[in-house]
Design a binder for these strands. Structure first.
Lengths: 205, 205
DNA sequence: GTCTATAGGAAGATAGAC
DNA sequence: GTCTATCTTCCTATAGAC
């Protein structure tokens, strides 16, 4: 449907690209929800289109590469969001305890208090199958672990302890989300968040 | 193809049910591998049939309920295996440290040293979608956590600590497997197993 | 940029011979 | 019990009007 802007001379907007009914950021967010809920195989074009409020053909117009491109861009957007809201605070100059508090808040929002699964888990394929996103997923995990380790080194841990602790924290995060899905409750994630500061910083030098 | 047994009178075996080319246990194991690798949606009948060494129609003969029945029976078999090889040892009369050692060995075999994902994770659906196996998965998680807690109570922990620790161990297990898939290495799982005895028993009363 | 309509193929599932 | 052949439905993807 063609839209007209009141007061604007007819014909002017016809030479401009028509406005999308949903902007890219919002679209990627809607698609991301589907991929996080259903995984890559489970996310059919029909479901994706319904979530976006668009027809399948409209999705193909905006993602000529089809479902794979959608997932790829969703993943890239998630990486950017993680970099800004999680990695950057972790590597800031603030006191480590404060960085961890920020981390807790950001994680809580990022995973909707345990109601949303992790994209990295849902888009992972078996190593033997070498999924289309293996490189991005590996990079994202490595970046999170590295940023956490930076904060822990700043908190006084040696390089090895910092790395072990940050890996363990990521395991607990992922495991808590798996448990939330499996048990049908957000409690494991909430408990994880409550204990995370202790888990990271207790016993520091 | 009809098989003849040398030395047996012709016609005798014709009245008996023809032998399956793959017995139920082996079949469920093959199908289980596919579900663990690909998840429920990703496990197509074509892939399942190829893994089983059968045609699709043969699978339907043995699982009239189709793919859902296959996954359900695979899950039930896994539950039985867990009960026998993991829960029972955890609830035995042996010293807690010894039970944990057995646990480590069994987990290592069960997950092929980190090469195989967890069926409970791969068959989980979002709580909002109420997947077909929600009840079984929840029950399996609860059973593992409860059995671990029994061993920890016997090790001297109070009920609450035992529960917290056992839940955390399951989170670490699941998280390590997620990380293995995501990073394309079995190291997180192997590290998890190495640290598991400490993780469970350190600081006991 | 979005839509309706449809092509082309893979998916789950069944029929019937052997 | 297993097979080949087939059915139907769903899925990914494209064509073309507006």
């Amino acid at each position: 449907m063609r839209r007209r802007v009141a007061g604007v001379g007819a014909g002017v907007e016809m030479h401009m690209a028509r406005r999308a009914t949903i902007d890219d950021a919002r679209l990627l967010e809607k698609l991301g929800c589907v991929f996080r809920e259903c995984g890559y195989e489970g996310a059919s074009l029909a479901v994706l289109a319904k979530a976006a409020g668009l027809q399948k053909a409209s999705l193909y117009h905006r993602f000529p590469g089809g479902k794979e491109q959608m997932a790829r861009e969703v993943l890239a957007a998630a990486e950017a969001l993680i970099a800004r809201d999680i990695l950057m605070p972790l590597k800031s100059k603030a006191p480590p305890a404060e960085r961890v508090d920020i981390l807790v808040r950001q994680l809580n929002g990022f995973y909707s208090a345990g109601r949303q699964a992790c994209l990295l888990n849902m888009l992972s394929a078996a190593p033997t199958q070498e999924g289309p996103f293996a490189k991005e997923i590996k990079r994202a995990f490595a970046a999170i672990i590295a940023a956490l380790a930076v904060a822990l080194r700043d908190a006084g841990f040696d390089a090895r302890s910092a790395r072990v602790r940050s890996e363990r924290a990521v395991m607990l995060l992922q495991g808590s989300l798996v448990l939330c899905r499996g048990m049908g409750t957000t409690r494991p994630f909430r408990d994880f968040l409550k204990r995370l500061p202790q888990e990271l910083l207790a016993g520091r030098a």
